[in-house]
Design a binder for these strands. Structure first.
Lengths: 254, 254
DNA sequence: CGGCGGGTTGAGTCGCATCAACATGCGTGG
DNA sequence: CCACGCATGTTGATGCGACTCAACCCGCCG
């Protein structure tokens, strides 16, 4: 399978073959961790960021009152903790949701690559920008969207993100390994209410979710209902950089 | 008054006098905008970031259903939109809350300064790290804290941030220009409920808030109640860089 | 077979939203 | 100077959305 990191970055800048070769050399030897294990301690020594190649992971925080909130979801192609450039960022943890295959990427090497190619520099900033925009959008969701809207919005967002790296099937389905309890920790809801909101979306006929597989039957309806506006994902940035390249969109929002 | 940007960055790295001189040269001519105006369009042309010198601003998003969510609060010393390195980030807006005095900072110049001094590089990354951690922490608040806890948490956070730049009075008070409606947009609450949560904190004797001025009477109690753990702000990073420098803390959390 | 992880369902409660009224301070114009 | 409007804050009544607790179901695995 093609490297999901490259697949994603191609949407952020126009990389040459040399750029891509350079990016491929960044990762150290591939490593694996089991589901539900801690990625940061297990995998990443100081100065290295885990680049997810397969599986899903998340950044989360446990509160003293026993509650948990997942602040970021990582899918293949995502660089975990892009802000971990500094020591003792003990304020959060990163855990694997599924079994995860990742490559440690050296911060030094990233910096060198960015300096050697303007296009790589741009692609990496684009990635950072997107990651940050995604977190801000979840502030909006948690603050101002209802439970079902939040859920629909998350599904739309993941649909786009997975589409960028070719992880959406022909039948508009994708793997969705989150348990209902995890979904609750992402959306700030109780598991019971996750269950009920899911039924709402199912009964509307927009999605189905069974056996770790999510299918979106009516993306337009789901998008409208969830107030999902994909512009924060900046998917068409590469098109604006190179006008000769047709705007590549895995997902079509009409 | 000393430059709040420098005051803040001193907590993130050990800057030399030359570093500070270099940073001071970054800003273009100072500009002012009235309260409630749009900072991005009015002030910042492409390639320049507004650096707040006086006043408060915010990044917000309006939803189609008429609701609004403020995702970031900017106080003096904050570089607005540190991720705006790329074009057409139309996914959010930045507005002045009070009258704002700011200096446009050129992205190119920032990059050059970071390349010229390792300490500046580190300070800027520290700033970025903090800004990002603050946004993640508000995901946690919105997802898993009650209305009054969220409010207390925000007050604690601002108390620390304003302390870094010397904006906390001897009597533990600070300017607090947000209206209750704005507070609601930050905390994801209705104005009515903001009012009631505010009374809760007042009646507990922890704070008072009148005439745009917030006083914290019992920081420790407020911190415990709000589950506020200041480690995400990475205030003591400079101390870890230079062991000879005593860990400077404006606010003391025992 | 029993246990367990995950999902589903129902009943009761509470936090927060909504709507509406009223209070207060301030600037403006008659 | 007062009358008025407007912005902001406060209070009460009512309803709904989401939480909690508890039971029950199912498939899987030891």
């Amino acid at each position: 399978m093609a490297n999901p990191f490259l697949l994603k970055l191609r949407h952020g800048a126009c990389l040459t073959a040399e750029d891509e070769a350079l990016l491929m050399e960044l990762s150290g030897p591939v490593r694996s961790v089991p589901a539900r294990s801690d990625l940061v301690q297990e995998g990443a020594e100081a100065g290295f960021l885990p680049l997810i190649l397969e599986g899903w992971a998340c950044r989360y925080r446990d509160l003293e009152n026993g509650k948990r909130q997942i602040t970021t979801l990582f899918v293949p192609g995502d660089l975990c903790e892009p802000f971990g450039a500094l020591p003792h960022s003990i304020d959060h943890a990163i855990a694997a949701i599924t079994p995860v295959v990742f490559a440690p990427v050296s911060l030094k090497a990233i910096g060198a690559a960015a300096r050697s190619s303007h296009r790589i520099y741009e692609a990496l900033w684009w990635d950072l920008l997107c990651a940050s925009a995604i977190e801000r959008e979840s502030i909006v969701s948690l603050g101002r969207r209802s439970a079902a809207e939040r859920m629909g919005h998350l599904f739309c967002e993941l649909y786009v993100r997975l589409g960028l790296i070719g992880l959406i099937n022909r039948d508009q389905s994708c793997s969705f390994p989150l348990r209902q309890a995890d979904l609750g920790d992402v959306l700030g809801l109780s598991t019971v209410h996750v269950n009920r909101s899911l039924q709402e979306l199912r009964e509307a006929g927009w999605i189905s979710l069974r056996n770790q597989r999510l299918t979106i039957h009516d993306l337009a309806a789901l998008r409208d209902f969830s107030l999902f506006d994909p512009s924060y994902l900046h998917m068409d940035h590469s098109a604006s950089v190179d006008r000769n390249r047709p705007p590549f969109r895995t997902v079509n929002f009409q």
